[in-house]
Amino acid sequence: MSLLDYFKSTKPNSAKVAKERLQILVAHERRSRHQPSYLPELQKELLAVIQKYIKVDQDAISVNFDSDDEQETLELNIILPDEPQT
């Protein structure tokens, strides 16, 4: 590490961190803005059904909605536990 690097690294660029965090968050929030309003309810009910059969966590299921000019996609993603439950 050169002397220059030492001086550089003592000044963390918090503005850069702020920008990166905002870009991710804003992109996420903009996507969810265009989602149908029934999505959270659907996610809750699906989770309830799946939990009847498999022991999964609350956050083991995600429902995503994407749309472009051509088509709309509803994506359901369930993370199953490592060991099968009996």
Binding site: K11, P12, N13, S14, A15, K16, A18, K19, L22, Q23, V26
Partner: peptide, 14 residues
């Protein structure tokens, strides 16, 4: 300039 505050360009980008 010190990297402590978002710049105009940063805010514009977002």
């Amino acid at each position: 300039k010190l990297g402590e505050m978002l710049s105009v360009d940063d805010v514009q980008d977002i």
